[in-house]
Design a protein around this nucleic acid. Structure first.
Lengths: 146, 146
DNA sequence: GCTTAATTGCAAATTTATTGCAGAGAGGGT
DNA sequence: ACCCTCTCTGCAATAAATTTGCAATTAAGC
């Protein structure tokens, strides 16, 4: 069998939960898929207005995608942005650089053992996690060592 | 020597960076100190208006405390709240329970080794981190197992 | 106390997010 | 392909959250 594209999976996800596949939802999804960084909803609304999606609809679509677990919130400084969750986007974390203000993806995540321990100690069931580091990116760190 | 109270340390912190010690700043600080959970700024503004602090001032005070590192933002669902940072409040993380919607503090943090590894691999300098877990608290987890 | 610069209050503007309702459109059955 | 139903969207209005400029106030050093 041929591999399933993210969009096909997205359509299935909507469908499976009784949500309809609409042009606006696809537009938001595609935008997020193409986008390397988390976006604030207001910014997303601005961007998509140019493509013909009403701002109010963007808010509603994000609610829908949140409910589906297709997107999740990320802390951007003291604001919130959204980005695609797994399996649409590989699980990863972020570094917010105090030096240049940019946000970096950190591919690896070695939190599983830590989280499993927390589950045991507290008798919790952890289903997701969001880690944001704050500090200096490689460039800014190198500069500050000089 | 007698131990230094959090408020004394706060006054010193303000002073050391050229900020003035004002009644409004103390009120915000004390409110956060007494408060077990992170607060949204708007909510804080409401609460403190009763004590005579103007809402606009609350926004400005939070900016000030953020700049000083006295408070830091925390992800609350898809909103942001603030809470005191170390050393005013012991470093800790949170669990957001999908079952009952409550937010729990997790005392221990065993992320240091993980973070040190990330620093090495990426040549970063990590100065702070924020981890929020999402899942089920002990009570909701027990119930769902039944 | 006096001086100076930081801080606050107020009013207004801006930005962000929510709501109700009527019309448009997606999806299932025929 | 057509129809029916129920979801989704657009619009306009509203509400809530946050920012800004400026004048008046006040903390802190001398």
């Amino acid at each position: 069998m041929t591999a399933e594209t993210p969009e096909q999976l997205f359509r299935k996800t909507l469908h499976a939960r009784g949500y309809r596949v609409t042009p606006d939802r696809l537009r938001v999804f595609r935008h997020l898929l193409a986008r390397p960084q988390p976006v604030a909803v207001a910014e997303l609304a601005d961007a998509l207005q140019a493509e013909g999606t009403h701002p109010v609809t963007v808010y509603r679509v994000i609610d829908c995608l949140s409910a589906l677990g297709v997107v999740h919130p990320v802390l951007l400084g003291s604001a919130v942005g959204f980005e695609l969750s797994a399996p649409f986007r590989a699980h990863h974390h972020h570094l917010w650089c105090r030096g240049c203000g940019r946000l970096f993806d950190l591919a690896e995540c070695e939190l599983d053992p830590v989280i499993r321990r927390i589950e045991e100690v507290h008798h919790l069931k952890v289903e997701g996690h969001e880690l944001t580091l704050e500090g200096l990116c490689d460039r800014c760190a190198a500069r500050s060592e000089a």
